[in-house]
C-alpha cells in the first residue's frame, strides 16, 4: 500500500500527516522554529515515529504553509488555501464553506464537492483575527490558548475591546486586568473580538452549505460559539481528525492524487 505525507509549515506551528489507503497512520505537530527547513524535518521525524515508519516509506510528500518552499523532502508544493479546502472536504464531505484561522492570517473559502477552492478571501489589513492575536492575549493573561477558549462559557459580562489593533487591544486587556475585571469576562471579550473580525471575512464570501472551521482556533469553543451567533449558522464539528491538521491532510491527499496520475504510482 502506498504511503503519502503532507507537511504544513505554518508561522506558529508545523504539522505532518502520514496517510495510507486514505487513513491517517501518523501525525505530529510542533511549534515552528525560526527556520522552516528545520521545522519540517523535526515534525516529519516526529510523525514518522508515531507511525513506526522511516522516510524511505513515504512515496510522495507535498509541502504547504508559509515555509512550503523551504522544505527539503517534498516533491510538490501547494498553497495552504487549496490544502485546507482539500483537507476540510476529507474531514467533512458535505463541507462547502471553510473558515481557516492560521497563526498569521485568516481565510474564508468556498469549495465544490471535491474540495476544490472556487472562491476565497484572506485578511488584508492586520494581525487581528489571527492565531497570533489570541496568542498575544493569552500571554498577557498568563494562560494557555486552550484555557482562553474555555473562558467564554463562564462569562456573564464580556468586555468590549474597542480597537482591532492587536497592540492596542493588548493595552485594553492590561487596563481591564488592572481594574480587577474577572478573567472570564476579559477572555470572553477577547474571543468575541476575534469572532467579530473573522465574521467580516466569512460574510464576504457569503457562506453556503455546511461550514467547517480549520486551523488551531477551531478548537477555541469561545470563538466558535460567538462566530455561530454572528453568522446565524451552525459551524459543523468533526471528530475525524484534529481540524488544525486540515492543511497537512489536504497536502497528503494532493500527494495521493499526484501518485494516482503517475502510471503505476497509485494504489
Amino acid at each position: 500500500m502506498t504511503i503519502v505525507a503532507g507537511c504544513d509549515v505554518g508561522s506558529l506551528t508545523s504539522k505532518v500527516v502520514i496517510m495510507k489507503s486514505g487513513r491517517i497512520v501518523g501525525s505530529a505537530i510542533i511549534k515552528s522554529r525560526p527556520k522552516p527547513k528545520e521545522s519540517a524535518e523535526v515534525v516529519m521525524q516526529a510523525a514518522l515515529d508515531t507511525a513506526g515508519l522511516n522516510m524511505d516509506d513515504i512515496a510522495r510528500c507535498t509541502g504547504t504553509g508559509y515555509g512550503r518552499e523551504k522544505i527539503s523532502f517534498v516533491r510538490d508544493i501547494r498553497s495552504e488555501i487549496s490544502c485546507h479546502g482539500k483537507g476540510a472536504r476529507w474531514l467533512l464531505p458535505s463541507v462547502r464553506t471553510i473558515i481557516d484561522i492560521g497563526g498569521q492570517d485568516c481565510k474564508a473559502m468556498k469549495v465544490d464537492g471535491d474540495g476544490r477552492v472556487i472562491h476565497f478571501v484572506a485578511n488584508d489589513k492586520c494581525a487581528s483575527g489571527t492565531g497570533r492575536f489570541l496568542e498575544v492575549m493569552a500571554g498577557v493573561l498568563g494562560i494557555s490558548i486552550e484555557e482562553l477558549g474555555m473562558f467564554s462559557t463562564g462569562s456573564n459580562a464580556p468586555v468590549t475591546l474597542a480597537s482591532t489593533c492587536t497592540v492596542w487591544a493588548q493595552a485594553d486587556v492590561i487596563k481591564f486586568i488592572n481594574s480587577g475585571v474577572p478573567f472570564a469576562d476579559i477572555g470572553a471579550g477577547i474571543n468575541g473580538a476575534m469572532a467579530k473580525r473573522v465574521a467580516i471575512l466569512a460574510n464576504t464570501v457569503k457562506p453556503e452549505g455546511d461550514i467547517l472551521m480549520t486551523g488551531g482556533v477551531a478548537k477555541n469553543t469561545g470563538v466558535v460559539n460567538t462566530l455561530e451567533k454572528l453568522l446565524g449558522r451552525k459551524i459543523k464539528k468533526t471528530r475525524k481528525a484534529d481540524p488544525q491538521m486540515a492543511g497537512a491532510i489536504g497536502a497528503a491527499l494532493f500527494s495521493m492524487e499526484k501518485l494516482k496520475n503517475i502510471p503505476g504510482g497509485g494504489e
Binding site: 498553497s79 495552504e80 476565497f120 484572506a122
Partner: peptide, 10 residues
C-alpha cells in the same frame, strides 16, 4: 504570493 499561488491553483 500566497494569494497568487492559491489563485493559480484555483
Amino acid at each position: 504570493k500566497l494569494r497568487i499561488d492559491a489563485f493559480l491553483e484555483q
